[in-house]
Amino acid sequence: MDSLRIEATSCSPLIDFDAEAGTLRIEGESYPENSFDFYAPVFSWLEDFLKEPAPAVVLDIGLSYLNTSSIKCLIDVLEMLDTANAQGRPASVRWHYDRDNDRALDMAEEFKEDVTLPFDILAR
């Protein structure tokens, strides 16, 4: 399966999904004009990827700003992984936040709250 890479812009994050290694990375700021359009290829890639038998999946997230529709998209991404994890496909999340920003930590906790897969919140 092909990997997925979308370069970052000033208003959209880097998407770097390596199918072979099972490492997924979302990094930057997310307030594209149309979040649902932006994340559509992410969803379809993930859907295909999670269908195939493959090694454990690790999602690294480093997002410092998300608009409301991006929050919705990210919750959906987490839910896809959470479902896969519950069905026996090991998946985990590492959330990287800026240690100088207390609110960034609170926000990570909010994302973590409703999923059951391993979810590490790491200061950087």
């Binding site: 998300l66 409301t68 609110r103 926000m107 909010e110 409703d114």
Partner: peptide, 18 residues
């Protein structure tokens, strides 16, 4: 319903921050 509440909460945090 829960997701909507969650999205609003996170979004509020972002707005306060900004």
């Amino acid at each position: 319903m829960r997701q909507l509440t969650k999205i609003a909460t996170i979004s509020d945090r972002m707005h306060t921050d900004s």
